[in-house]
């Protein structure tokens, strides 16, 4: 296993003494052999805190996170022999807002910033930059431009390219599609699917969009009130009766299918995964 959480709990300290519990007793295993995981749950349920443990930005208060064989516990950092930095090359984390990381004069310089920090030679880093800029659906012309003159969607792509250029085995993205319009969102999700399939990397996405979960994920992890309450297949999740308790919506296709079945008082022979399948099923009934 590339990442293993064992009974991990984490609290944010607070000045008034009441600590805010963000993770409670989390057990989770993630492999780097091409998983496509979506991480869902309400705002404040601990999703972002969870992913920040995956590349050792945070250390658990109790329990341990093992990343590529290196065990991280509460006091790990005090022992300077253990270097946390190299782990961040293996598990690339892209934050929600590209504004948090873009700072160089050109897109090229920004993309090679990460690899160079991990000791990659400049010419090798540039070679990688030319490669990854295509992976994120932009052209080489962008490399010479300033990251601050790009549209929101393009900035997001550049920020992802900056992490991809580090050549991580696992790519973690915190709400990558928020704020994008449907076209931009779909393009980005297609891109992740490509990275997932072609480069055989594990992708972990935090999202609020159940359609994304249903359409793309091979595995879904649900957080609720700092606890991990579900870890399994998306299909099964949306049949779980707890889904309302966890404040999760149904994907459009499932919701509409259910409503159609109820209003027409019929049961379709199978569960459609997209609008075409649903249409075919309806044609059969009508």
């Amino acid at each position: 296993m590339a990442i293993k959480f064992e009974q991990v709990s984490f609290q944010y300290p607070s000045f008034d003494g009441k600590n805010f519990s963000a993770l409670e007793n989390i057990n989770l295993e993630i492999s780097d052999k091409g998983e496509f995981i979506t991480l869902i749950g309400e705002t404040g349920s601990g999703k972002s805190t969870l992913v920040q443990h995956m590349n050792a930005l945070l250390r658990p208060n109790t329990g341990s996170v093992t990343i590529y064989g290196i065990k991280i516990e509460k006091n790990t950092n005090k022992n300077k022999k253990i270097k946390l930095n190299p782990l961040r090359q293996k598990v690339g984390l892209v934050f929600q807002f590209p504004e948090y990381q873009l700072f160089e004069e050109t897109v090229l310089k920004d993309i090679i910033f990460g690899p160079k920090n991990f000791g990659v030679k400049e010419d090798e880093a540039i070679k990688r930059a030319k490669e990854v800029i295509k992976h994120v659906g932009l052209t080489e012309d962008y490399l010479g431009r300033s990251p601050f003159n790009l549209s929101g969607g393009e900035q997001k792509r550049v920020s992802i390219a900056g992490i991809l250029a580090m050549e991580p085995d696992i790519l973690v993205l915190d709400e990558p599609t928020s704020g994008l319009d449907p076209k931009g969102r779909d393009a980005l999700l297609e891109l992740f699917t490509n990275i997932h399939k072609k480069l055989n990397k594990t992708i972990i996405i935090i999202t609020h969009d159940m359609n994304t979960v249903y359409k793309y994920a091979s595995r879904v992890v649900v957080m609720h009130d700092a606890k991990l309450v579900y870890d399994g297949l998306p299909n099964m999740l949306f049949m779980d009766e707890n889904i309302e308790k966890w404040n999760l919506d149904l994907p459009d296709i499932i919701g509409i299918t259910k409503q159609l079945e109820a209003k027409l008082d019929i049961t379709f022979t199978k569960k459609p995964h997209n609008v075409n399948e649903l249409f075919e099923l309806m044609k059969g009934v009508l």
């Binding site: 930005l57 930095n85 961040r88 948090y100 990381q101 990460g114």
Partner: peptide, 16 residues
């Protein structure tokens, strides 16, 4: 809060 997040984002890119 923002400064903290930027620091984490850059740490994720190998800034030690």
């Amino acid at each position: 809060d923002e400064a903290n997040k930027i620091m984490l984002a850059q740490a994720s890119r190998g800034v030690d």
